[in-house]
Design a protein around this nucleic acid. Structure first.
Lengths: 122, 122
DNA sequence: ACCCATAATGAAAATGGTTGTCATTTTCAT
DNA sequence: ATGAAAATGACAACCATTTTCATTATGGGT
């Protein structure tokens, strides 16, 4: 029976495309006339993380954000002043993360990377 | 005046040696007859992070943990399970950030990058 | 079809780390 | 010493997440 909520949540994550917090996901799902409780969203996310269908990360403020596992991910170049965001290729980073992790005996390696600065317009 | 609490907190971090949460730090400090409030510990940690004297990371449950920051700019490889941390050289990243930023007309470029995984012992 | 055990659901309350409030205290320059 | 400004800390507010618990759906055995 958890199957149903799990697939709703997966659908939500697909719709969102990138990262989403549990609460955002709950909003999105209910906005689209999917009636699902916040508790259930949390439980579905937890079980999806357990079965490694979903990645969990932490924002700087500690809030958990989730994304589909294996979704191609990119990095962001964000303007500290106006918030303008550019998507960046990160092939170098993937390799760096993989290699650094492996060298130190780590497995299940993931990473986060953001670049920030002031854009030309600001 | 924040100087005093900041140095108390720094002393606490030295005594602890590695990572400590704000609450642990508060306990340690008061156990050692340093009278300091929890609020002040949080504020001191925040300002130390701002002035880059202290690193902040997140445990898996989202709790913030802090430690003294070495002078050299490095990145971290963190075990998602036990919190073990390895410092990583990030020369590649610096270049990647600089270049990606410049290509898009950004200035004052900074970046964050963390690698995480499961360490050999876990 | 009909029970019934079991799992799933979600509203509401509890938890716990973190941050905001504000009255009080300390510091420092004059 | 005195007043302004910064610092402090007890307490309350906040908010993401978890727990509780009563209700509802599911599905296998008869």
């Amino acid at each position: 029976m958890s199957k149903k909520s799990n697939s709703k949540v997966l659908a939500g994550l697909e719709r969102v495309g990138g990262f989403a917090s549990a609460q955002e996901l709950h909003l999105v799902l209910n906005r689209d006339s999917e009636s699902i409780g916040l508790t259930t969203v949390y439980r579905a996310l937890q079980s999806l993380v357990d079965e490694k269908a979903v990645d969990i990360l932490r924002k700087e403020d500690g809030e958990a954000i989730f994304r589909l596992c294996g979704a191609t991910h990119h990095h962001h170049l964000v303007c500290k002043s106006c918030g303008k965001t550019v998507e960046i290729e990160g092939g170098v980073i993937e390799k760096w993360a993989e290699q650094s992790g492996a060298e130190n005996g780590f497995r299940d390696i993931g990473h986060t990377a953001e670049i920030f600065g002031i854009c030309a317009a600001c």
